[in-house]
C-alpha cells in the first residue's frame, strides 16, 4: 500500500484530503501543518509520497520540499497548490518536487496523481509545462553558458502539454511512442533539477557554507 503524508496549514483541508486519499486505498501515515514538523515527521515515517501545500503559516513549503528530497531519496513530493503561487511552484519543482497539481483538482485526479508520483512518474499539468517553458526561456536569455537547454523536440512536447494535450494525443500528433513522449517530459524536469542542485552546491562552496571535500 502506498504511504502518504499530507502537509497543509489548514486543518479542514488537511482532513478532507486525508479522507479522500484513505477512501481510495492510500495509507495516510502522517500529517503536518508547518514546514518544520513536516520535515521532522517525514524523516520519522518515510512516506512514499508527500502531498505538499506551499503556503504554510510558518516556514516555506519550498524549503520543506528541498529538505525532504535531500534527506529521503525514496520519498517523492507532489505539490498541491493554489494557482496563485506560480513562482513558488517553480521553485518547489526545481527543488526536487516530482509534480504539481492545482488545489482545484478533483479527488480522483489527486488519487491518480499520487499513484503516478509513487511510481516515479512526473505529474505534469499544463500549468507546470508553462512554468518550465518560461524558466528555460529565462535561463537561455541569462548569462550562464552552462544553463540547461531544451531540444527542439522537448520544446515542442512541452508546448503541447501546456496546451492541455494528453501524452497519448501528443504521441499521435508528433508520430512518437507514448513512452518517448513521457521520457521527453521527464527529461525537461530532470535537467532543471540537476542544474538547480549544481547551482546550490556551487553557491555553497563559493560562500564557504560547506567543505568542498565532503561535497
Amino acid at each position: 500500500m502506498t504511504t502518504v503524508m499530507v502537509v497543509d496549514d489548514h486543518p479542514m483541508w488537511r482532513e478532507a484530503v486525508e479522507r479522500d486519499l484513505a477512501a481510495r486505498g492510500f495509507e495516510v501515515v502522517a500529517t503536518a501543518g508547518d514546514a518544520g514538523s513536516a520535515v521532522r515527521r517525514a524523516l520519522a515515517v518515510r512516506p512514499d509520497v508527500v502531498v505538499m501545500d506551499l503556503q504554510l503559516g510558518t516556514g516555506s513549503g519550498v524549503d520543506a520540499t528541498r529538505d525532504v528530497v535531500a534527506a529521503l531519496p525514496g520519498t517523492r513530493v507532489l505539490v498541491l497548490s493554489a494557482s496563485a503561487e506560480q513562482a513558488d511552484v517553480l521553485e518547489a519543482v526545481k527543488a526536487g518536487a516530482s509534480g504539481y497539481l492545482v488545489k482545484s483538482a478533483g479527488a480522483d485526479e489527486l488519487a491518480d496523481a499520487v499513484t503516478r508520483t509513487a511510481a516515479g512518474d512526473a505529474v505534469f499539468s499544463a500549468g507546470l509545462a508553462g512554468l518550465l517553458l518560461g524558466e528555460y526561456r529565462r535561463l537561455q536569455a541569462g548569462p550562464d553558458p552552462g544553463a540547461p537547454q531544451l531540444t527542439e523536440r522537448e520544446t515542442e512536447v512541452l508546448k503541447l502539454v501546456s496546451r492541455g494535450l494528453s501524452a497519448k494525443a501528443i504521441a499521435e500528433r508528433l508520430v512518437l511512442s507514448h513512452r518517448t513522449v513521457e521520457n521527453h517530459v521527464q527529461n525537461t524536469l530532470r535537467k532543471l533539477q540537476l542544474h538547480n542542485r549544481v547551482e546550490l552546491t556551487r553557491y555553497a562552496i563559493e560562500h564557504g557554507l560547506t567543505d568542498p571535500d565532503s561535497a
Partner: peptide, 10 residues
C-alpha cells in the same frame, strides 16, 4: 475549474 491557464512565472 474548467479552464487551466499555463504560462511562465516571469
Amino acid at each position: 475549474p474548467d479552464v487551466d491557464v499555463a504560462g511562465p512565472a516571469e
